Amino acid sequence: MKKIGFGILAVALAVAGSAFTAPKKDLNNVYYFPLNNLGQPQSISTLPQTENPFSCPGRATPCSAGYATYVQNPDNSYSATGTMVSGTEEYVGD
Rank of each mutant, 00 (worst) to 15 (best):
A16Y: 09
F33T: 00
G17C: 01
L35I: 01
Q40Y: 15
Q49L: 08
Y31P: 10
F54I: 01
D94R: 09
F6V: 08
F20T: 01
R59M: 03
S79N: 06
I8P: 12
A22Q: 06
Y67Q: 02
A16W: 08
G58D: 10
Q72D: 10
T50C: 05
A65H: 04
N37R: 14
R59T: 07
G7H: 10
Y70L: 05
M1E: 15
E89G: 13
L27F: 13
N28K: 12
E90F: 14
G17W: 02
P53C: 00
G58M: 06
I4E: 06
G39Q: 06
G58L: 04
V11Q: 13
M84A: 12
D94A: 09
Y91P: 08
V15Y: 14
Q40W: 15
F20R: 01
Y32R: 00
G87Q: 10
T83P: 03
S45N: 05
I44T: 05
D75Q: 06
T81M: 06
T46E: 05
F33I: 00
I44L: 11
E90V: 05
S79V: 03
I44E: 05
N28C: 15
Y31K: 08
P57C: 10
Y67A: 02
A14T: 14
A19E: 11
N28S: 14
F20A: 00
L13Q: 07
L35D: 00
E51S: 07
Q40V: 11
K3H: 07
G93C: 09
N76E: 12
V92G: 12
V30N: 08
V11L: 11
Q42S: 12
P74I: 07
K24F: 07
D94C: 08
V11R: 05
D94W: 11
G82D: 09
F20M: 03
N29L: 08
Y32A: 03
E51D: 13
C56F: 14
T83N: 09
Q49A: 12
Y91H: 13
G58A: 06
V30M: 02
F54C: 00
E51V: 04
P57G: 11
P23F: 02
V30G: 00
L9V: 06
V30C: 03
P41C: 04
N29C: 09
G58I: 04
Q72C: 10
L13R: 01
N52G: 08
G87T: 04
P62Y: 02
S79Y: 02
Y32D: 02
F33L: 01
A60C: 08
A60E: 08
L9D: 10
T81K: 09
D75Y: 04
E89M: 14
G5M: 14
A22F: 05
D26V: 03
Q49S: 12
Y67F: 03
L27N: 14
L9A: 14
L13H: 04
